[in-house]
Amino acid sequence: MTTSQAGSRPFATGPEMGEALPGFTLPDQHGNQVDIHEARNGGRAFVVFVRGTSW
């Protein structure tokens, strides 16, 4: 984990390039539990963290 400097404010960017994406399981919009690595189904994934969907 690192932070990068954007102006004078520290800005956390999470796990580093080359590291394994830390696993997690969360409910999707239909309430189904989704394991991020199972959802990849052995393929590549683009995982986006958003501030929120509705604003």
Partner: peptide, 26 residues
């Protein structure tokens, strides 16, 4: 009320589950 939101950004993950690209900025 917005406490809990992330610094937004994205990871591109390869077939082995490793991060090959990161896009995070203010």
């Amino acid at each position: 009320r917005l406490y809990g939101m992330p610094f937004p950004g994205a990871y591109l993950v390869d077939a082995g589950g490793r991060i090959t690209q990161k896009h995070f900025n203010t």
